[in-house]
Amino acid sequence: MAEPRTRPKRATIFDVAAEAGVSRGTVSRVLNGEPYVSQSAREAIEAAIEKVGYVRNTAARNLATQSSGAVALIVHEPHSVFVEDPNIGAILLGTNAALSEADYQLVSLIIDTDRDTERVVSYLGGGFVDGAIVVSAREDDPIADALQRLRIPTVLVGRPDTAPELPSVSIDNRTSARQITERLVATGRRRIGMIAAALDRDSGRDRLAGFRDALGDRFDATLVVDVPLYSFHAGQEGMRALLDRAPDINGVFAASDAIAAGAVDVLRADGRRIPDDVGVVGFDDSAWALRCQPALSTVRQPADRLGARAAELVLDEIRTGERRSGVVLLPTEVVWRDSA
Protein backbone atom coordinates (compact mmCIF):
# COMPACT_ATOMS: atom_id res chain seq x y z
CA MET A 1 0.00 0.00 0.00
CA ALA A 2 1.41 3.36 -1.00
CA GLU A 3 2.50 5.72 1.75
CA PRO A 4 0.30 8.83 2.03
CA ARG A 5 1.88 11.88 0.46
CA THR A 6 2.78 14.65 2.85
CA ARG A 7 3.56 18.26 2.06
CA PRO A 8 7.29 19.07 2.44
CA LYS A 9 8.07 21.06 5.57
CA ARG A 10 8.38 24.75 4.74
CA ALA A 11 11.60 26.46 5.85
CA THR A 12 10.98 29.13 8.50
CA ILE A 13 12.72 32.26 9.66
CA PHE A 14 14.04 30.19 12.60
CA ASP A 15 15.75 27.81 10.15
CA VAL A 16 17.43 30.77 8.45
CA ALA A 17 18.57 32.18 11.79
CA ALA A 18 20.01 28.83 12.91
CA GLU A 19 21.85 28.30 9.63
CA ALA A 20 23.28 31.85 9.62
CA GLY A 21 24.15 31.79 13.33
CA VAL A 22 22.26 35.00 14.08
CA SER A 23 19.10 35.93 15.96
CA ARG A 24 15.60 35.78 14.53
CA GLY A 25 15.36 39.54 14.96
CA THR A 26 18.43 40.09 12.78
CA VAL A 27 16.92 37.93 10.03
CA SER A 28 13.67 39.88 10.29
CA ARG A 29 15.49 43.20 9.90
CA VAL A 30 17.20 41.97 6.74
CA LEU A 31 13.93 40.67 5.28
CA ASN A 32 12.23 44.01 5.99
CA GLY A 33 15.05 46.03 4.47
CA GLU A 34 15.94 47.70 7.75
CA PRO A 35 19.40 49.17 8.51
CA TYR A 36 21.72 48.40 11.43
CA VAL A 37 22.76 44.95 10.20
CA SER A 38 26.44 44.33 9.51
CA GLN A 39 27.50 43.39 6.01
CA SER A 40 28.88 40.04 7.20
CA ALA A 41 25.58 39.16 8.94
CA ARG A 42 23.59 40.22 5.89
CA GLU A 43 25.70 38.02 3.62
CA ALA A 44 25.37 35.07 6.01
CA ILE A 45 21.59 35.47 6.10
CA GLU A 46 21.31 35.69 2.30
CA ALA A 47 23.40 32.53 1.97
CA ALA A 48 21.25 30.77 4.59
CA ILE A 49 18.05 31.75 2.78
CA GLU A 50 19.40 30.19 -0.39
CA LYS A 51 20.55 27.03 1.38
CA VAL A 52 17.40 26.23 3.39
CA GLY A 53 15.06 27.34 0.58
CA TYR A 54 13.25 29.94 2.64
CA VAL A 55 10.28 31.62 0.92
CA ARG A 56 8.62 34.49 2.68
CA ASN A 57 5.09 33.78 3.93
CA THR A 58 3.31 36.60 2.16
CA ALA A 59 -0.09 35.66 3.56
CA ALA A 60 1.15 35.97 7.14
CA ARG A 61 2.86 39.25 6.38
CA ASN A 62 -0.30 40.62 4.75
CA LEU A 63 -2.33 39.62 7.81
CA ALA A 64 0.07 41.50 10.07
CA THR A 65 0.28 44.62 7.92
CA GLN A 66 -3.38 44.61 6.76
CA SER A 67 -2.09 45.00 3.19
CA SER A 68 -2.12 42.59 0.26
CA GLY A 69 0.32 44.41 -2.01
CA ALA A 70 -2.09 43.80 -4.91
CA VAL A 71 -4.49 45.86 -7.02
CA ALA A 72 -7.32 44.35 -9.07
CA LEU A 73 -7.96 45.27 -12.68
CA ILE A 74 -11.63 44.42 -13.18
CA VAL A 75 -12.68 44.16 -16.83
CA HIS A 76 -16.44 44.15 -17.37
CA GLU A 77 -16.48 42.59 -20.86
CA PRO A 78 -17.31 39.21 -22.42
CA HIS A 79 -14.33 36.89 -22.76
CA SER A 80 -14.35 37.25 -26.54
CA VAL A 81 -13.99 41.03 -26.36
CA PHE A 82 -11.30 40.77 -23.68
CA VAL A 83 -9.19 38.73 -26.11
CA GLU A 84 -10.13 40.68 -29.26
CA ASP A 85 -9.91 44.29 -28.09
CA PRO A 86 -6.32 45.65 -28.23
CA ASN A 87 -7.31 48.60 -26.04
CA ILE A 88 -7.97 46.32 -23.08
CA GLY A 89 -4.55 44.77 -23.53
CA ALA A 90 -2.94 48.22 -23.67
CA ILE A 91 -4.80 49.35 -20.55
CA LEU A 92 -3.69 46.18 -18.76
CA LEU A 93 -0.04 46.68 -19.74
CA GLY A 94 -0.10 50.35 -18.74
CA THR A 95 -1.65 49.45 -15.40
CA ASN A 96 0.85 46.68 -14.78
CA ALA A 97 3.84 48.93 -15.58
CA ALA A 98 2.75 51.56 -13.05
CA LEU A 99 1.97 48.98 -10.36
CA SER A 100 5.22 47.12 -10.94
CA GLU A 101 7.16 50.34 -10.51
CA ALA A 102 5.56 50.65 -7.07
CA ASP A 103 6.15 46.95 -6.24
CA TYR A 104 2.44 46.11 -6.40
CA GLN A 105 0.99 43.00 -8.02
CA LEU A 106 -1.73 43.21 -10.67
CA VAL A 107 -4.68 40.82 -10.30
CA SER A 108 -6.89 40.52 -13.40
CA LEU A 109 -10.60 39.80 -12.86
CA ILE A 110 -12.94 39.35 -15.83
CA ILE A 111 -16.72 39.75 -15.52
CA ASP A 112 -18.75 38.08 -18.26
CA THR A 113 -21.81 36.77 -16.36
CA ASP A 114 -23.88 37.47 -13.26
CA ARG A 115 -22.11 34.56 -11.60
CA ASP A 116 -18.78 36.27 -12.31
CA THR A 117 -20.13 39.39 -10.60
CA GLU A 118 -21.07 37.44 -7.46
CA ARG A 119 -17.70 35.70 -7.38
CA VAL A 120 -15.73 38.92 -7.84
CA VAL A 121 -17.73 40.78 -5.19
CA SER A 122 -17.04 37.93 -2.74
CA TYR A 123 -13.34 37.98 -3.63
CA LEU A 124 -13.08 41.74 -3.15
CA GLY A 125 -14.67 41.43 0.29
CA GLY A 126 -11.98 38.96 1.34
CA GLY A 127 -9.23 41.57 1.63
CA PHE A 128 -7.15 40.10 -1.20
CA VAL A 129 -6.52 43.48 -2.87
CA ASP A 130 -5.70 46.96 -1.59
CA GLY A 131 -7.36 48.77 -4.50
CA ALA A 132 -9.22 48.29 -7.77
CA ILE A 133 -9.39 49.68 -11.29
CA VAL A 134 -12.62 49.05 -13.21
CA VAL A 135 -12.65 49.00 -17.02
CA SER A 136 -15.96 49.28 -18.93
CA ALA A 137 -18.15 49.93 -15.89
CA ARG A 138 -21.85 49.94 -16.80
CA GLU A 139 -24.64 52.09 -15.46
CA ASP A 140 -25.91 50.72 -12.13
CA ASP A 141 -22.88 48.44 -12.04
CA PRO A 142 -22.97 46.19 -8.92
CA ILE A 143 -19.17 46.03 -8.92
CA ALA A 144 -18.83 49.79 -8.50
CA ASP A 145 -21.49 49.68 -5.77
CA ALA A 146 -19.66 46.86 -3.96
CA LEU A 147 -16.32 48.68 -4.12
CA GLN A 148 -17.85 51.78 -2.58
CA ARG A 149 -19.55 49.72 0.12
CA LEU A 150 -16.31 47.92 0.94
CA ARG A 151 -14.41 51.22 0.94
CA ILE A 152 -11.73 49.85 -1.35
CA PRO A 153 -9.70 52.57 -3.13
CA THR A 154 -11.10 52.53 -6.65
CA VAL A 155 -10.58 54.33 -9.97
CA LEU A 156 -12.76 53.87 -13.04
CA VAL A 157 -11.50 53.89 -16.62
CA GLY A 158 -14.48 55.73 -18.06
CA ARG A 159 -17.04 57.70 -16.07
CA PRO A 160 -20.49 56.15 -15.52
CA ASP A 161 -22.97 58.69 -14.20
CA THR A 162 -24.17 56.39 -11.43
CA ALA A 163 -20.80 56.38 -9.61
CA PRO A 164 -19.88 60.10 -9.45
CA GLU A 165 -18.13 59.65 -6.09
CA LEU A 166 -15.44 57.45 -7.65
CA PRO A 167 -12.51 59.12 -9.42
CA SER A 168 -12.07 58.23 -13.08
CA VAL A 169 -9.65 58.50 -15.96
CA SER A 170 -11.13 58.97 -19.39
CA ILE A 171 -11.00 60.82 -22.70
CA ASP A 172 -13.45 63.30 -24.18
CA ASN A 173 -15.33 60.78 -26.32
CA ARG A 174 -17.97 63.28 -27.44
CA THR A 175 -15.57 65.92 -28.74
CA SER A 176 -13.33 63.30 -30.36
CA ALA A 177 -16.28 61.69 -32.17
CA ARG A 178 -17.48 65.10 -33.35
CA GLN A 179 -14.05 65.97 -34.72
CA ILE A 180 -13.58 62.83 -36.79
CA THR A 181 -17.17 62.97 -38.09
CA GLU A 182 -16.56 66.57 -39.18
CA ARG A 183 -13.49 65.39 -41.12
CA LEU A 184 -15.64 62.73 -42.78
CA VAL A 185 -18.29 65.32 -43.68
CA ALA A 186 -15.57 67.58 -45.12
CA THR A 187 -14.78 64.92 -47.75
CA GLY A 188 -18.10 65.82 -49.37
CA ARG A 189 -20.12 62.78 -48.30
CA ARG A 190 -23.81 63.33 -47.64
CA ARG A 191 -25.23 59.93 -46.65
CA ILE A 192 -23.29 59.21 -43.49
CA GLY A 193 -24.32 56.54 -41.01
CA MET A 194 -22.96 55.29 -37.71
CA ILE A 195 -22.49 51.87 -36.17
CA ALA A 196 -22.95 52.81 -32.52
CA ALA A 197 -22.00 50.44 -29.72
CA ALA A 198 -22.03 50.00 -25.95
CA LEU A 199 -24.77 52.53 -25.30
CA ASP A 200 -25.03 51.21 -21.74
CA ARG A 201 -21.84 53.08 -20.85
CA ASP A 202 -20.53 56.59 -21.21
CA SER A 203 -18.09 55.95 -24.07
CA GLY A 204 -20.76 54.58 -26.39
CA ARG A 205 -23.33 57.26 -25.59
CA ASP A 206 -20.80 60.07 -25.90
CA ARG A 207 -19.52 58.88 -29.27
CA LEU A 208 -23.07 58.80 -30.60
CA ALA A 209 -23.66 62.29 -29.19
CA GLY A 210 -20.51 63.59 -30.90
CA PHE A 211 -21.62 62.09 -34.22
CA ARG A 212 -24.96 63.82 -33.83
CA ASP A 213 -23.28 67.13 -32.93
CA ALA A 214 -21.20 67.04 -36.11
CA LEU A 215 -24.19 66.42 -38.39
CA GLY A 216 -26.56 68.89 -36.75
CA ASP A 217 -29.78 69.24 -38.75
CA ARG A 218 -28.55 66.61 -41.20
CA PHE A 219 -28.57 63.90 -38.54
CA ASP A 220 -30.81 60.97 -39.57
CA ALA A 221 -31.65 58.54 -36.76
CA THR A 222 -32.46 55.81 -39.31
CA LEU A 223 -28.79 55.80 -40.32
CA VAL A 224 -27.67 54.80 -36.82
CA VAL A 225 -27.40 51.08 -36.05
CA ASP A 226 -26.95 50.08 -32.39
CA VAL A 227 -24.79 47.02 -31.67
CA PRO A 228 -23.97 45.71 -28.18
CA LEU A 229 -20.19 45.33 -28.27
CA TYR A 230 -17.02 46.94 -29.63
CA SER A 231 -16.24 43.88 -31.75
CA PHE A 232 -15.45 42.83 -35.32
CA HIS A 233 -18.54 40.60 -35.49
CA ALA A 234 -20.74 43.46 -34.27
CA GLY A 235 -19.28 45.65 -37.01
CA GLN A 236 -20.20 43.09 -39.65
CA GLU A 237 -23.78 42.89 -38.36
CA GLY A 238 -24.09 46.67 -38.10
CA MET A 239 -22.81 47.27 -41.62
CA ARG A 240 -25.22 44.75 -43.11
CA ALA A 241 -28.07 46.53 -41.32
CA LEU A 242 -26.92 49.92 -42.61
CA LEU A 243 -26.73 48.66 -46.20
CA ASP A 244 -30.25 47.23 -45.90
CA ARG A 245 -31.55 50.59 -44.65
CA ALA A 246 -29.56 52.80 -47.01
CA PRO A 247 -27.94 51.15 -50.04
CA ASP A 248 -26.74 54.61 -51.14
CA ILE A 249 -24.74 55.22 -47.94
CA ASN A 250 -21.31 56.72 -48.69
CA GLY A 251 -19.84 57.38 -45.25
CA VAL A 252 -19.63 55.37 -42.01
CA PHE A 253 -18.44 56.30 -38.54
CA ALA A 254 -17.79 53.13 -36.55
CA ALA A 255 -17.68 53.46 -32.76
CA SER A 256 -14.42 51.48 -32.57
CA ASP A 257 -11.68 50.24 -34.88
CA ALA A 258 -12.79 46.62 -34.41
CA ILE A 259 -16.30 47.61 -35.53
CA ALA A 260 -14.85 49.54 -38.46
CA ALA A 261 -12.82 46.48 -39.53
CA GLY A 262 -16.01 44.41 -39.54
CA ALA A 263 -17.76 47.10 -41.58
CA VAL A 264 -14.92 47.20 -44.12
CA ASP A 265 -15.11 43.41 -44.48
CA VAL A 266 -18.81 43.57 -45.36
CA LEU A 267 -18.41 46.54 -47.72
CA ARG A 268 -15.63 44.85 -49.67
CA ALA A 269 -17.66 41.63 -49.90
CA ASP A 270 -20.52 43.75 -51.29
CA GLY A 271 -18.23 45.13 -53.99
CA ARG A 272 -17.92 48.62 -52.45
CA ARG A 273 -14.61 50.41 -52.93
CA ILE A 274 -13.07 52.16 -49.95
CA PRO A 275 -12.81 55.14 -49.90
CA ASP A 276 -14.12 55.70 -53.44
CA ASP A 277 -17.65 54.44 -52.80
CA VAL A 278 -17.78 54.53 -48.99
CA GLY A 279 -15.49 56.36 -46.58
CA VAL A 280 -15.03 54.62 -43.21
CA VAL A 281 -13.63 56.03 -39.97
CA GLY A 282 -13.15 54.36 -36.61
CA PHE A 283 -12.13 55.12 -33.05
CA ASP A 284 -9.12 54.03 -30.90
CA ASP A 285 -6.16 53.78 -33.30
CA SER A 286 -5.67 50.20 -32.19
CA ALA A 287 -4.01 47.38 -34.12
CA TRP A 288 -7.28 46.95 -36.04
CA ALA A 289 -6.71 50.32 -37.75
CA LEU A 290 -3.61 49.09 -39.57
CA ARG A 291 -5.08 45.67 -40.35
CA CYS A 292 -7.74 47.33 -42.50
CA GLN A 293 -7.12 47.79 -46.20
CA PRO A 294 -6.84 50.68 -46.76
CA ALA A 295 -5.52 51.78 -43.35
CA LEU A 296 -8.20 53.28 -41.15
CA SER A 297 -8.75 56.93 -40.32
CA THR A 298 -9.49 57.01 -36.61
CA VAL A 299 -9.20 58.72 -33.23
CA ARG A 300 -6.07 57.88 -31.28
CA GLN A 301 -6.69 57.40 -27.58
CA PRO A 302 -3.81 56.69 -25.16
CA ALA A 303 -5.06 53.34 -23.83
CA ASP A 304 -1.80 52.45 -22.06
CA ARG A 305 -1.70 55.84 -20.39
CA LEU A 306 -5.31 55.44 -19.23
CA GLY A 307 -4.27 52.30 -17.36
CA ALA A 308 -1.09 53.85 -15.96
CA ARG A 309 -2.84 57.00 -14.75
CA ALA A 310 -5.63 54.97 -13.12
CA ALA A 311 -2.98 52.91 -11.30
CA GLU A 312 -1.22 56.06 -10.12
CA LEU A 313 -4.45 57.43 -8.67
CA VAL A 314 -5.27 54.17 -6.89
CA LEU A 315 -1.79 53.95 -5.40
CA ASP A 316 -2.03 57.55 -4.21
CA GLU A 317 -5.28 56.80 -2.38
CA ILE A 318 -3.84 53.59 -0.87
CA ARG A 319 -0.86 55.51 0.48
CA THR A 320 -2.62 58.63 1.72
CA GLY A 321 -6.10 57.34 2.53
CA GLU A 322 -7.52 60.35 0.67
CA ARG A 323 -9.78 60.00 -2.37
CA ARG A 324 -9.52 62.58 -5.14
CA SER A 325 -12.89 62.87 -6.83
CA GLY A 326 -13.41 64.05 -10.37
CA VAL A 327 -12.45 63.03 -13.89
CA VAL A 328 -8.93 63.10 -15.32
CA LEU A 329 -9.20 63.62 -19.09
CA LEU A 330 -6.34 62.53 -21.34
CA PRO A 331 -5.88 64.03 -24.83
CA THR A 332 -6.78 62.37 -28.12
CA GLU A 333 -6.04 63.16 -31.76
CA VAL A 334 -7.55 62.42 -35.14
CA VAL A 335 -5.28 60.23 -37.28
CA TRP A 336 -6.25 60.60 -40.93
CA ARG A 337 -5.40 57.72 -43.27
CA ASP A 338 -6.67 56.38 -46.59
CA SER A 339 -10.00 54.81 -45.56
CA ALA A 340 -11.86 58.12 -45.96
Rank of each mutant, 00 (worst) to 15 (best):
R245P: 00
G235F: 04
A234F: 10
Q236Y: 09
D226N: 10
N250D: 09
A255M: 09
S256H: 06
F253S: 03
F253L: 04
V224P: 04
L229P: 12
S256D: 09
S256P: 10
G251F: 03
F232R: 08
P228S: 04
G235Q: 05
L243W: 06
L223Q: 02
E237L: 12
Y230A: 09
L229C: 12
F232P: 07
N250M: 04
A246E: 06
S256I: 00
S256Y: 01
D226I: 08
A221H: 14
A234Q: 09
A255T: 06
A221Y: 14
L243M: 11
D226S: 10
F253G: 03
L242H: 02
G235C: 04
E237I: 12
E237S: 13
R240G: 13
V252L: 07
A234H: 11
N250C: 02
V224L: 12
F232H: 09
A234K: 11
D226C: 07
A246P: 01
R245L: 03
M239N: 01
D244T: 14
V227L: 15
T222D: 10
A241G: 02
D248E: 11
P228F: 11
V252S: 02
A221Q: 15
L243S: 01
S231D: 05
L242G: 00
A254S: 09
V227R: 15
G251C: 03
P247T: 01
G235R: 07
A221T: 10
P228M: 07
E237V: 14
V224R: 08
I249C: 00
E237Y: 15
R245H: 03
D248I: 07
A255Y: 10
S231K: 04
I249V: 07
L243N: 02
Q236W: 10
V224Q: 08
D244P: 08
S256G: 09
S231V: 00
E237Q: 11
A255E: 12
Y230T: 02
Y230G: 10
L223Y: 10
L229N: 13
R240T: 10
N250R: 02
R245I: 05
I249F: 01
F232M: 02
M239E: 03
F232G: 02
F253H: 05
H233S: 15
L242S: 00
N250V: 12
A234T: 01
A241S: 07
T222F: 12
H233D: 13
A241R: 14
L243K: 03
A246Y: 09
F253I: 06
D226G: 05
D248L: 08
R240Q: 10
L223C: 01
A254L: 03
L243Q: 04
Q236A: 11
T222V: 09
N250H: 02
R245V: 03
A246C: 08
G251V: 08
T222R: 15
G238L: 07
Q236T: 06
V225E: 15
D226R: 14
